[in-house]
Write a protein that binds this DNA or RNA. Sequence first.
RNA 1: GCCGAAGUGGCGGAACUGGCAGACGCGCCGGACUCAAAAUCCGGUGGGGCGAAAGUCCCGUGUGGGUUCGACUCCCACCUUCGGCACCA
Length: 795
Amino acid sequence: MDKYEPQEIEPRWQQVWEDARAFYVANPEDPAEASREGKFYMLEMLPYPSGNLHMGHVLNYTLGDVVTHYRRRNGFTVLRPMGFDSFGLPAENAAIREGGHPREITERNIENIRRQMRRLGWAIDWDREVSAHEPTYYRWTQWLFLKFFEAGLAYRKEAPVNWCPNDQTVLANEQVVDGRCDRCGAEVEARKLEQWFFRITAYADALLDDHALLDWPDRTIAIQRNWIGRSEGAELLCRVSDLDIDIPVFTTRPDTLFGATFFVLAPEHPLVEQLVAGTEHEVEVLEYVRRAAARSREERETKDKDGAFTGRTVVNPGTGGEIPVWVADYVLMEYGTGAIMGVPAHDERDFGFAERYGLPIVRVVEPDDGSGQEEEGEEGAFSAHTENERLVNSGEFSGLPAPEGAAKIVDWLRSRGRGAPAISYRLRDWGFSRQRYWGCPIPVVYCEDDGIVPVPEADLPVLLPEVEDYRPKGKPPLASNEEWLNVPCPRCGKPAKREADTMDTFVDSSWYFLRYTDPHNDSAPFDRAIADFWMPVDQYIGGIDHATGHLLYSRFFVKAMNDFGLLGVREPFARLFHQGWVRQGGSKMSKSRGNVTAPDQLAAAYGADAVRLYILFMGPADQDMEWTEEGVEGIARFLRRLWRVVSEVIEAAPADDGVVEGPLARKAHETIAKVGDDIGRRFVFNTPIAAVMELVNELSRATSDQAARFAAETVVSLIQPYAPHIAEELWQRLGHERLWEEPWPEADAALLVRETFELVIQVNGKVRDRVEVPADLPEDELVDRAKASPRVQAQ
RNA sequence: GCCGAAGUGGCGGAACUGGCAGACGCGCCGGACUCAAAAUCCGGUGGGGCGAAAGUCCCGUGUGGGUUCGACUCCCACCUUCGGCACCA
């Protein structure tokens, strides 16, 4: 018997699969007519090509690999592509650090990762590989941008960005950690610059409603729901009598309208200046606005509430009374209308403000217990929404239950043209322009006469130009290439300038799963019929850190593309699974933390099969795990044991027509049922390994009969998705071929049914007796049997 | 504060629909092989009593209650940890 030598076996089988094009899948001849029955689109989030794969990647892609093999062998046509999210800051920063061009570094990293992926034996269709930085890809990113622009879903406006005063650059949000630049540690400032935005807020309701279509983890849906932050309420108009202007406010508590004793504008509110212009309050208010602007976000959130009185009043549309208008920075311009009605009796924040400035506090909602209790002071001055409340001090609405009162008040306001039901969202439009080099150019031109002019489709791609110095230095690096920057206006031909910002990499990754379906198309991003054949992704696997980024952006992109008529589906990812973090020393494993174990050394020491098995055996795949190599020896032992036991069977039990029966045969069938159920239905990946280990343990006790032979073949077949190399080798030695195409084994249902089972009889929680009873006995019979037990009778 | 997830041996974890808690693996202990060690193989391993032994009894799944013949699992209250949102009107 020869030794188990993964370093010899593994490359050999990888070559066999490549030569046989085992995991490549062709698109249907006529995708519009092809049956979608049996198609399976397996996708894992594409890697960022930074240096090396780490164990988090190994977990992610091994999970996808197990599912791919399992589905294939269950008769599905599985699309399982791979690509690289190859634009972005890390490559650029690495290039700045090491010298050299981001493209060289990126392409070197891609080459290296591709090699690591092949070394691990993942079943990937490499014909469909795409990389975001290749013009053949980003040409279509630009094309899609133009569609969004035409539809009014991409627009430009002035907005605050993160500015690092030390590095003289705009930072992406993900580069700001606790308010500081993650490279130099300087405190980040807010600056106002013209920026590009995607109008994702137009899809806020669709993004919420269509959660119902998705088989996603509850927590992911909850995170997205929180992020979108939909609040129902009303928008009402408050009139500044002196100036004849109406200021809209949003509230979720219209029932408390009669308790609004003051009015507050955010310091950034555009009407502030007009309200105080030329009044005695002007100096004081503008000074307050300036001070507020200088405050850091953190200071603004933690200090006591303060503000400045404008000297103006507005009419409370409920009471008809005049209430004072203040400016205070606890009101945020970004949310609602940037103005609020202050109801100190029923809002904690308004209460704090009113106390400080001596503003009146009027209770208008009370618990409906009939006692009319009047509590005063801190505790009683405001009250949270509870089940049974009624309105008081609210004119004709007094006495109504609070929810009904709210509805009646909104109706009443609407009839007088002073308000309407309204919905407010926390979600903001997606700012996607970056003042950096290594990204997809935004294909527009600025013309003095024509404004923003899209680059004609025929002129795409707008190639990312070479620049002398791609370091960020306050203005976009692309702008330094004058030859590239200055072009005639596509509309009028006059001298114009290109957009020098590039796109956020999340734009690239918002549609890559569509390009995979038709990766070589050079007349469109993809053919609709082909995309409609494969989409949606049947199983997506990736980190939960993308819940409010990539996973939201991609849903938005697909919805918009569906509205453009480019695509049939409205959701990209039907089913979603998040692998847990692989931590080392307590923190998430990532390149930026430098706490990375490369899978290479591990594969060199134990083989790819051991690495794959080990990462899945460590624990439930959706839970975080602390990386340790402690247990990898156990997996290596298991593989050697598997090799030895199966080799023994090959020698001791040549295949014949002998009967396959007995406890070992039954155990094999139970294992088939368990493994298939775990992978297919429960989507758990650690317990199937334990089940196969159990079967190997039992098999090792008797290796010489036909039941042993059946058990050995079963073991090899079931472990194949996890450890395809050793499985293929042993399968061949067992006298078969092409295990990767072998149908998944089926458990013999008859063998799974136990004819009898051991009934455990308990009285008051104590085990009194165990009796063997027929499995099909009805419950009352079971009770009778239990009562008939002498040991129960003796009690 | 609101929303979500999770607490089981020395460790990672198993127990899926309420039915012998601790599968499988790590570690540890003992044995075989060996001049010896490594590797490999075999056996043991939740805690505590009683017993020479076969055994047998008690305790035990974050805490306190409850439902049930029976609870890691269901219900109520709480504690702890982790994640999301948060001056969001």
